[in-house]
Design a protein around this nucleic acid. Sequence first.
DNA 1: ACGAACCGTAAGCTACGACTTACCGATGCT
DNA 2: AGCATCGGTAAGTCGTAGCTTACGGTTCGT
Lengths: 109, 109
Amino acid sequence: MATYREADGWEILGDPTRRAIVASLAERPRAVGELAQELPISRPAVSQHLRVLKDAGLVDDEAAGTRRVYRLNPAGVAALRDQLDVFWRRALEGFQETVEQAADEEGRP
Amino acid sequence: MATYREADGWEILGDPTRRAIVASLAERPRAVGELAQELPISRPAVSQHLRVLKDAGLVDDEAAGTRRVYRLNPAGVAALRDQLDVFWRRALEGFQETVEQAADEEGRP
DNA sequence: ACGAACCGTAAGCTACGACTTACCGATGCT
DNA sequence: AGCATCGGTAAGTCGTAGCTTACGGTTCGT
């Protein structure tokens, strides 16, 4: 094999900064500068992450004067979540019962 | 902020090779050499990935003669899955309805 | 029209993760 | 005992993701 590199949704959310951006935008739409202020990185770095998220269809941007407001794209988020679920479903097919059983037994030995 | 680096479950499954290993072990337990044969990387590389997965509690290993059989740890897998769900739940809290609505409308405009 | 605010992009650096080769220990077989 | 198989670990290389600084473009205010 060599083509097991289909789902790159993992790479997108693999970066903690990107996850922080997504979480922040989930709360409410924000401008680039706002995001940069909450995060321990520079503004251009935020821009680059936003570009990745936009290419993935996770966020939409809208010009508002000199500022540019980014917001989460519900459809993109849902699609990504489905994509990640595909891994769990496909990979753990036939293993699911055991997993769920273990999940049930968690916390009460 | 600075401490948004809590959940490292993403880093673990962020690597495509590691995902392939998990998917393979979900099918059935395998020895290190078996895994290396299916993947386009060397055996030591597989060993290193297995170490990461074991440290995360995702796999268990068992000595079988000279071979060492690895299998998925159901509890660990379930725990990881829960951990990832925490992100979705926490991050998208209050955004959930919109997302689910978009998911429903997907494919039938 | 001019300066300020806001942002995207280019260029370059750096740290780290993933991989390789080489070596060594442990187990099984004859 | 001796050889082969299997696997973990060490050491070192390499690519690339993520960051920074520098620069240029666009929009708003006065």
